[in-house]
Amino acid sequence: MLLIHCPYCEEERPEIEFANAGEAHIARPSDMDGLSDQAFEEFFFIRSNPKGLHYERWRHIHGCARFFNALRDTVTDRFVATYKTGEPKPDIAAEGKDQ
């Protein structure tokens, strides 16, 4: 069972309190009505699914109930960073170095 640092609870909490919520930093377009088919496809269907570092959303559903973002390595399962919704992405190059 992983430990996940919740940026709102400010401590590591057991994985079973959390739910994954897919890839992060995919903003819902403000002009949904005028969205082209291709732009909708990219927004709704296309995901990066990388091997390695992945920006993703988690929800501390059985804790503070906040959604937050995480940078996780999909190979090792290691969480490199977690940060609050709305905060900028941490730099992968910088975060990846201390592995």
Binding site: A19, A21, A27, R28, R57, R59, I61, A65, R66, F67, T85, G86
Partner: peptide
């Protein structure tokens, strides 16, 4: 509820 919270917290905060 999760779906609603998701939109409220992340898209329409």
């Amino acid at each position: 509820l999760n779906h609603m919270e998701d939109y409220l917290q992340t898209e329409f905060p």
